[in-house]
């Protein structure tokens, strides 16, 4: 999550808007971005649209770990996405983008650039 200077950060919500261990979806410059809050208030962001179904649902999946990878399971077909990279574990061709995300005060910021 290094921040390139050209990136444009958008404040989307406050930390308390996201229940620990769950995700929400933000609309940032017409992109649907899933933002997850893990224990210790770590934040991760990937595309919200599940490439397999085309539905905007990834933020509604269950998060956890598989081995060393932090993942979310799509609520539709349970395929797993790496929260750090957006890689789909089962079908790499269904991988999605990941986005830089950080906390500024109480504000959750994403870079959608």
């Amino acid at each position: 999550m290094t921040t390139a200077p050209s990136q444009h950060w958008t404040a989307v919500c406050s930390l308390t808007d996201i229940l620990p261990g769950t995700g929400v979806c933000a609309l940032v410059a017409d992109r649907h971005i899933a933002i997850f809050r893990l224990a210790g208030d770590e934040l991760y962001a990937i595309d919200n649209i599940d490439p397999r179904s085309g539905a905007s649902v990834l933020s509604r999946g269950l998060v956890g770990n598989l081995g060393d990878q932090l993942v979310v399971a799509s609520p539709l077909y349970k395929n797993h996405f790496d929260l750090r990279t957006g890689a789909c574990l089962e079908t790499p061709e269904h991988s999605v983008r990941s986005y830089p995300v950080r906390l500024s005060g109480d504000s959750v910021m994403v870079a959608s650039g």
């Binding site: 929400v24 979806c25 649907h32 539905a55």
Partner: peptide, 11 residues
């Protein structure tokens, strides 16, 4: 649908 926008999911 969106944490930062009241509109429905247009998709």
């Amino acid at each position: 649908t969106f944490v930062n926008d009241g509109r429905p999911d247009a998709r």
